[in-house]
Nucleic acid binder design. Structure first.
Length: 221
DNA sequence: GCGACAG
DNA sequence: ATCTTGTCGC
């Protein structure tokens, strides 16, 4: 797919802040998606003691979840890991990987937060706004927000709240396992995000999309 | 000042 | 994120 890479990507939090404040206003958290035929999963890993970032993308058919296409890319890491600024570290490589795809995903499930972020602008929002594709944030752990205890059964969920505002949901993707933190990235509502994450999850805790991407990244051959 | 803190 | 073997439980 054709990707427009932003100019002058920031390398410090100070330079990233104004960009977050500018782009967060472009985030859409209402359903603005077509019928989903292709769902993609993205995962970023590191090599050479973190100096090289590697992104793996897997495109699956929906709802049958069969692998259709995959891509992997590497590039120098230019931004440090700072809670609240993860997208500035991982989005560049992800854009490289997406650019290699022949298929344009109708939806992308990201490994990180969507609006469940201090500025309501997590990795999934940043990626979604830049490429104008619906995205969902499905993180393995919490960044911010509080929630009630969650029943142990697969499918149960509780709203994630920050300052009285619902910013996402804590979702049990599998019975008796740690929950997933789901939040809208771009062009999708929270309810729809939860539904797609569950529909993309079969036998394991993580959605099949991110599992394929994780697997691809760990092989890198 | 003391913790918390996506990956 | 990454370094790593076995092990407990459904």
């Amino acid at each position: 797919m054709k990707i427009q890479h932003p100019q002058n990507w920031p390398e410090t939090a100070e330079a990233a802040i104004p960009i977050q404040d500018q782009l967060k206003s472009l985030v859409v958290t209402t359903d603005q998606l077509e019928s989903i035929q292709y769902v993609a999963g993205v995962d970023v890993g590191f090599l050479d003691n973190y100096s090289i970032s590697q992104a793996a993308v897997a495109v699956l058919s929906f709802p049958d979840l069969q692998l259709q296409e995959q891509a992997i890319t590497q590039r120098k890491t230019t931004f440090p890991y700072l809670p609240g600024f993860l997208s500035f570290r991982e989005v560049p490589v992800i854009l490289d990987a997406l650019e290699k795809l022949t298929i344009t995903p109708d939806l992308i499930i990201c490994d990180g937060q969507g609006i469940a972020h201090p500025k309501r602008f997590g990795l999934a929002c940043h990626l979604g706004v830049l490429i104008d594709v619906p995205t969902i944030g499905a993180a393995k752990s919490r960044l911010i927000g509080i929630h009630q205890e969650l029943p142990p059964e697969k499918g149960s969920w509780q709203p994630l709240i920050d300052n009285g505002e619902v910013i996402g949901a804590v979702v049990r993707s599998r019975t008796n396992v740690k929950p997933l933190y789901v939040s809208p990235g771009h062009r999708i509502s929270l309810e729809t995000s939860i539904n797609y994450v569950l529909q993309c999850t079969s036998k394991y805790r993580l959605p099949e999309t991110t599992r394929y991407a994780d697997h691809l990244a760990s092989q890198s051959d």
